[in-house]
Amino acid sequence: MAKKEVKTDLWVASQLDKCKIQFTAQGSDVKEIDEALSTASKRGTGNAGYPEYVAVVNDFVIVIEDKADLDKHTKLTDTALIETTTKAITDYAVNGAYFYAKHIAQNSSFKKAFAIGVSGDAKHHKITPLYVDDREGYVELEDVESFTMFNQQNIYEYYLRNVLKEKTDVEKTTEQILKDASTLHEYLRTYGSLKDQDKPLVVSGILLALDEIESGSFSISSLTGDDVETDGEKIYNAIQKRLKRSNVGPDAKRDKLMSEFAIIKTSARLNEIDDKLKKTPLKYYAEFLKTNVFDNIKYKSSAEDFIGRFYGEFMSYSGGDGQTLGIVLTPAHICELFCDLLNV
């Protein structure tokens, strides 16, 4: 178990580094917080106790406890509250993080803290944040996929939306998303000379590849217009990894999907450096999608899927409603209805 715990510790540290969050292991570089932890023994002895990692981002403290075993993620009471018995805060990630965060909030001038429990490994994990202050209780927050929203750029927006429940201007308006869809369609025609039925494949393929940035297996900077391994081949390989990571199967189904994306690597026009752009059209499209879709749509104020809205609007420029291409997008209200019926 000790070896598995170390692997989890290292993975969490790597994710914090990737999200540009400066942290301290087993203590804090901030003297006041370290002094508060000097009496934070989980067993209530008054001796020192230290979480896996502590970070200070703006005026927020982030406290992280992790466990290798997913079954040791959180322990609740019969009334569905975070259990605070010695065994619970010692054995469970969320409970331990909550204990340390509350202790810091009550014994230092840092009154706003996010307690984050992490369990599992790089492939299968859970990341659960709680908001904690020096008063009794805590705010339950939805599980997250990474620590991105807790870095210096995002943490205050996250706090406003998820803790204070205030609206922010981080979300892109629907109007802007629809405008971007129109703009991208024009770029695909101008620089890629693509047929209508191929445009959705290029866009959806790049969106899948961009999802691999976090894993480190794909980067836009790698798209250099190389003749040996083309930009299209790099994006195609990233798509394949994304589908495998998402457990799309069986193999025959995945192979059929990959054959549809072959246009990305077989189109000479997409893979040649454009004289006007000074880069390949594929890199240009990838930069556009990351900047205008991924980086600007960080939160959702409702069940509405903004990326779905973008893609749906884009489809209207590429073969009507998409059904002529064999693509049918379920309306959002139908998705919401069935999610409510299934309680998911």
Rank of each mutant, 00 (worst) to 15 (best):
2 A>M: 11
12 V>K: 08
14 S>K: 02
14 S>A: 06
14 S>I: 08
16 L>A: 10
19 C>Q: 11
23 F>R: 12
28 S>F: 02
30 V>Y: 08
32 E>H: 00
35 E>T: 04
39 T>N: 10
40 A>G: 00
43 R>D: 09
47 N>M: 15
49 G>W: 00
59 D>C: 01
61 V>A: 14
62 I>M: 05
66 D>R: 09
74 T>P: 00
79 T>D: 08
84 T>K: 13
84 T>F: 09
89 I>A: 07
89 I>R: 11
91 D>Q: 12
93 A>M: 04
94 V>A: 05
98 Y>K: 12
103 H>T: 09
109 S>C: 05
109 S>G: 15
114 F>R: 04
119 S>Y: 04
120 G>L: 03
121 D>W: 06
122 A>C: 01
126 K>C: 09
126 K>Y: 05
131 Y>T: 09
132 V>F: 00
136 E>T: 12
139 V>P: 03
148 T>I: 11
149 M>S: 11
154 N>W: 11
156 Y>A: 02
159 Y>D: 04
159 Y>W: 06
160 L>K: 13
166 E>N: 14
169 D>M: 12
169 D>A: 01
170 V>A: 13
170 V>R: 14
171 E>T: 07
172 K>V: 11
178 L>Y: 08
179 K>F: 14
184 L>V: 01
186 E>N: 15
186 E>D: 11
188 L>Q: 15
192 G>I: 06
196 D>Q: 13
206 I>G: 05
215 S>R: 10
215 S>P: 09
216 G>I: 06
217 S>E: 13
217 S>C: 06
217 S>L: 10
220 I>T: 11
221 S>A: 05
222 S>F: 08
231 D>S: 00
236 Y>F: 10
237 N>C: 06
238 A>F: 01
241 K>A: 11
243 L>Y: 14
246 S>F: 03
247 N>R: 04
249 G>N: 15
265 K>Y: 11
265 K>V: 03
276 K>Q: 14
285 Y>T: 01
286 A>W: 01
287 E>V: 06
290 K>M: 02
291 T>Q: 09
293 V>Q: 08
301 S>D: 15
302 S>I: 09
306 F>Q: 07
308 G>T: 14
311 Y>Q: 00
315 M>L: 09
315 M>Y: 03
320 G>Q: 04
323 Q>I: 00
324 T>F: 11
325 L>C: 07
328 V>A: 07
330 T>A: 01
333 H>D: 15
334 I>L: 13
337 L>A: 15
337 L>Q: 10
340 D>T: 04
341 L>D: 03
343 N>E: 07
343 N>W: 10
344 V>Y: 09
